[in-house]
Amino acid sequence: MSAVVGGLTDAARGTATTPTPTPISRRKLTGYFLLLPALAWLAIFFAVPSVQLMATSLYDRSGSLEYGYEMTFAVGNYPAAWTAYATQFGRSFMYAGIATVLAIFLAYPLAYAIAFRAGRFKHLMLVLVIAPFFTSFLVRTLAWNSILADNGFVVGSLKTIGILPEDGRLLASSVAVVAGLTYNFLPFMVLPLYASLEKIDLRLVEAARDLYANGFTAFRKVTLPLSLPGLVAGTLLTFIPASGDYINSQLLGTPKQAMIGNVIDRNFLVILDYPMAAACSVTLMVAIVTMVLFYVRRSGAEELL
């Protein structure tokens, strides 16, 4: 750092008409060295498994664990996976999409309140948002089993006011699965939203009001655009894991709510059809990346990438 500062002051004195590039390039190298651990991590835990996964998806499906798989570049595995599991793919993205939208509507007011209205309770509220993470994902999901129980308070109340028919239920339905997804990934929406809202200079909102914007217009023209990076980040952090999730549909759903994660799980662990499972995984990955790229481009938040 001091070398750079030195370089600048030299330049300021006007002595360095042919400046030596050494300080800059050393700094550049330091950057790369600092990157090495992360790169090694990525290579070992992401690049290699991804290649392995792609390779597995192209194995001949007539092979088996027992006798081994042959690499035949069987691209036919992909259409086979798409036709066999089109409904589960569609359902995953639909559930994840609904859960993300619900999470936005729940998280935005909450993050807004924490950032601007919580006062001395700000830290307490943040802790409360994170608190569920102190128990396991499984336990949190099973808790919904109690909340939505057939003889429970929620179902009883909904029946009384006639929203739910007399023989209706919430558990083991799409409602339960989407509710579970929304709940489980809500903190991932709240935290980035809070981070971007908290940074907003409130004087900008004041200025908007001074210029005769009403509350809603000030929100729409100032607060919302400035919180967009948090909104986009939150959407990604919610949508991506939700589309691959299989615990919620397994514990709160029925076969009619099976998501692509359940398909991959069963293919890997029970059916032992590794190429099929890999083809589904790769498809899911590519589909998500495509959707994310499209979404980020549209929302103009490329700096997140």
């Binding site: 290649v51 392995q52 792609m54 092979g63 690499m71």
Partner: peptide
């Protein structure tokens, strides 16, 4: 990827 891919992709798997 170029280094890793052929090693991983080329051969399939042995019987277990």
């Amino acid at each position: 990827l170029a280094v890793a891919a052929p090693g991983l992709v080329g051969c399939g798997t042995q019987g277990a």
